[in-house]
Each structure stands twice: as structure tokens, then as C-alpha cells.
Amino acid sequence: MLEVKNLHKVYDGHGRRVTAVGDLTFSVPEGQFACVVGPSGCGKTTLLRVLAGLLPATSGEVLVQRTPVTAPPPGLAVVFQEYGRSLFPWLRVRENVELPLKAQGMARSDRGALAAEALAAVGLSDAHGAYPWQLSGGMQQRVAIARAIAYQPRVLLMDEPFAAVDAQTRADLEDLVRSVWQRFGVTLLFVTHDIDEAVYLGQRVIVLSASPTTVAQDLTIDLPAERDQLTTRSDARFTELRGQVYAQIQKVKAPA
């Protein structure tokens, strides 16, 4: 469960104010897969950082599991866009996945079991002894996803996680995220600039306007739950929804 109420974020530098997020209100019910899209520079990353408790809001409120966010909330995991920089290069894959659990004071055997399960879920069972930099970009992002799963979050935030991987890998990772969401039943907020990806993945797409950011459109994606790169993307309904989101983004981009 994730609630955003009248969120407002202003960057304040000596006398000059830059409004990054104007007035944002939406909520994501328990277990929903919501995608956030918007034109580039619309404050998507700012929004995500506020949600994750990494950045204080100027005004308004963010609640995760009904608790106001002031610091990074427990039960919330983040997958960052820069997979190469969010994994610890001096720790092996398994140690990377286990470190947050260690910080919680979890016993070694429980950590090992959770990490093994998470790595298996992302298809990396045999890579646990490698260093992140020995893996390809797509595999590194899988490790980051495994780390998030092992953390057993109720809410999972993903910040353009596939922006820097090649198209083929990207399709695989999209299906991976769908299956992880279905299997673990987390509330998932997925930020992306790719309209196709948003429509393909989400149960819902929230379109943001250009800065100062507000919700321009909130669209339910009524595609069947079982999705497939080939059939879903060639579905007439998919094309229609994609067209709606595209038109909306063109509209909000225009005034700037």
C-alpha cells in the first residue's frame, strides 16, 4: 500500500526555487502493479526518491503501509537504474543479496536460504560466487532484483531498471519482473520512460505531466493477467492503450 497526498517538492538554492513536483496525489492499493510514465525531466526520479525516503518532501505526505515516510521505510525495497553502481563491487553476488538481511540481524542459515531462493527466482542459481562486474548488465540487474526480493518487501520501487540494457535482455527482464510480482505479491511501482514497457507490464499506468509534475492521466490496463511478449504486444487492445498513453504524453509535453 502506497499513498501520495498533495506531494510538493521544491529544490531550494539560494533565493532561486525550482519546482520539481507540483501537486501529486495518487495511491497504489496493496498488491497492485503500477507503472509511472512521463516525458523526460518530469521529476520521475525525484518522486521515486521521495517515496523511498531518500529525499524529504517540501510539503504533502507519503505513506507506505499507512506509515508516513520520513526516512527509508522498512519493508520497502528499491531497484535502481544504475545496476553497475548499486551493487557492491567488492562483494560476491550472494554477499550482495545477503548484506541487507545481515543488517537486519538475520541468522546466517536463514540468510543463505532466502538468498538462494531469490537468486533461483531470477535464474541466477549458479552465479552466486561471482563478482557483479564479472556478469553482463542484464545479469547484474537480475542480482539487484534478487536482492530486493530477498529483502521480502511489501512495496517494491523500480527506477527505470531496464533503461541501460539491450532490447533482447530487456524483454526477458520484463517477463521476469511480471513473474516475480505474481509470485511474491508485492505492491510494485515501476518508473519508466518507455510507453510500451509501461503498458505491457502494469495493471495501471499513471501518466505524469511535464514539470511541475501532476498526474495527467490515470489509466487502467485491462489486458489479461497472462502476458506474453508476442501475443500481448500484437493485441489490438494493447495498441489502443499504447496510443492513448502516447497521445497524452504528447499533449503534456506541448506547453513547455
Binding site: Y11, G13, H14, G15, R16, R17, V18
Partner: peptide, 14 residues
């Protein structure tokens, strides 16, 4: 433009 000006003044202040 605005952002750049803001940054410069912050940097000189710092």
C-alpha cells in the same frame, strides 16, 4: 537557466 543560476550562487556560498 534558473537552475544554473541557483547552482552558481549555492556554490559560491559554499
Amino acid at each position: 537557466m534558473v537552475a544554473v543560476a541557483a547552482r552558481t550562487s549555492r556554490v559560491t556560498g559554499r
